[in-house]
Design a protein around this nucleic acid. Structure first.
Length: 455
DNA sequence: TTTTGAGTTGTTCGA
DNA sequence: GTCGAACAACTCAAA
């Protein structure tokens, strides 16, 4: 009997963001349909996980409970409690790895410590026993005389009241079949060009599997198997440079999980402790943060990314790095603000990956970007969106500018701006900060951090 | 315990 | 326009 319990309070300090709730609703709807088509019924319950399980056991006489493990600190604690309670009552309780190639507790370096540098971590993983794909979903559910009570999906209240999620529908297909289609399409050909194409946000060069992976609609072991199958006839693994680079990204996801597992406070606290002293900038009215969130910073590549995020619930990885660096280094606002916004707006919001990504950007995490690496938004735009397709799509008010000025409208002569229908400060903002000044201030802030560091 | 080599994704400056 | 160096040490992993 398949059961999903929606336990909003049980998610701890990281209650699902708005975008995540939308995905969960869609994904459960699809799962319910697929199970019904195979003669079963997905039982939905809302409330405290332990109590709802208890009720189900009472009413059905179930003698065993199985689930896929999660790794967020507060959820691990909750699920461990449930497991021991069930076992004490003589109920079989078993959890399984459904989300990772290698679970955090199985990986350690030769000193018996968790890895904190990616390359040796991934090298270590690659020589371990190769991950096997799991079994397929059952084609028929066993017939049950009577199905227990289920609430309706709408009772979860996951769908947003306003229409802000309308842009998600046209881009995403939540659910297992959507996940499989995305994997198949990617593995067929896109993957071979991944090493290069992944850097260009206007191209379809990435897998877009992140929400499917996060929500468990497909597992990294299935991804691994699909990549492996591709080169099987030639006996080559990985089948291409692109495939190798892509699998390393799956590796980063795993690395993020094991960092969260071993360093539980990192969703809110920097891994490198001296960063607690970092002189973040004052933004009392939240104006700078707001300009970033709304995609109104005056830097086209940054604004394009933030608007893509808001509209589609997803942002291209290259642009995530650019907007992350911009928030933390140009605006000098705490990375936690960025992590919170991403948590609320990303369909693939994942505590482990989000934490690693933001600490990486801020330079305070494991194997992070060095402090002096400050992405220059204009250069990044010209380098990775040279034809301007990405910026023109997401920042249409400056679309008529030529490539030369598209990534730096303030450099355009007055006549050029007028011709393109742009009045800076009116229908497109002037830059909220000056790149050169902001960069110098960020370097100075990091320098101060070094000098005030204890011992 | 000490030593050694190495480390996702960049930018700027000056020759 | 192109190229190498500086940015700045620091920490981790393994020998």
């Amino acid at each position: 009997m398949p059961v999903f319990i929606w336990d909003d309070a049980g998610e701890g300090d990281w209650a699902l963001g708005g975008a995540s709730q939308w995905w969960l609703h869609q994904s459960l709807a699809v799962l319910g349909t697929e199970i019904r088509e195979r003669g079963g019924q997905l039982i939905l319950r809302r409330g405290d996980s332990a109590k709802e399980l208890e009720r189900l056991i009472e009413s059905t006489g179930a003698d065993a409970v199985y689930w896929s493990r999660r790794y967020e600190p507060s959820i691990r604690q909750r699920d461990a409690g449930i497991k021991s309670t069930l076992k004490k009552r003589g109920i079989e309780a078993q959890s399984f790895n459904g989300a990772l190639l290698h679970e955090p507790h199985t990986i350690q370096n030769k000193q018996g410590r968790p890895f904190q540098v990616f390359t040796p971590y991934w090298r270590h993983c690659l020589v371990l026993a190769k991950p096997e794909p799991g079994g397929d979903a059952p084609t028929r559910w066993p017939a049950l005389g009577r199905w227990p009570e289920s609430v309706s999906l709408d009772d979860f209240g996951l769908m947003p009241a306003l229409g802000w999620a309308s842009g998600f529908q046209s881009v995403w297909q939540p659910g297992e079949s959507g996940a499989r289609q995305a994997l198949t399409a990617f593995a067929k050909s896109v993957i071979d060009g991944y090493a290069r194409a992944r850097d260009f946000p206007a191209e379809r060069g990435t897998s877009r599997l992140s929400p499917h992976l996060h929500w468990g609609e497909i597992s990294p072991r299935q991804v691994w198997a699909a990549v492996k199958a591709k080169g099987a006839d030639r006996g080559i693994f990985p089948p291409s440079k692109g495939a190798q680079v892509f699998l390393a990204e799956i590796g980063w996801r795993e690395f993020a999980y094991q960092l969260l597992f071993h360093f539980e406070s990192t969703p809110t606290q920097p891994l490198r402790e001296q960063f607690r002293q970092f002189p973040w900038r004052d933004d009392p009215a939240g104006k700078l943060l707001k300009s970033w969130q709304l995609g109104q910073t005056g830097y086209p590549i940054v604004d394009a990314g933030m608007r893509q995020l808001w509209t589609t619930g997803w942002m291209h990885n290259r642009v995530r790095m650019v907007v992350g660096s911009f928030l933390v280094k140009h605006l000098r606002l705490p990375w936690q603000r960025g992590a919170e916004w991403f948590w609320d707006t990303l369909l693939d919001a994942d505590l482990a990956s989000n934490t690693l990504g933001w600490q990486w950007s801020a330079g305070c995490g494991a194997d992070a970007a060095p402090y002096f690496r400050i992405f220059a938004p204009v250069l990044q735009g010209r380098k990775f969106d040279g034809d301007g397709d990405y910026v023109r799509k997401w920042v249409p008010e400056i679309a008529r500018l030529s490539d030369k000025f598209l990534h730096a409208p303030w450099e355009a002569p007055a006549g050029v701006l007028a011709n393109a229908g742009i009045e800076l400060g009116r229908n497109y903002p002037r830059p909220v900060v000056d790149h050169g000044e902001a960069r110098a201030a960020a370097l100075a802030a990091y320098k101060m951090l070094r000098e005030t560091r204890p011992n």
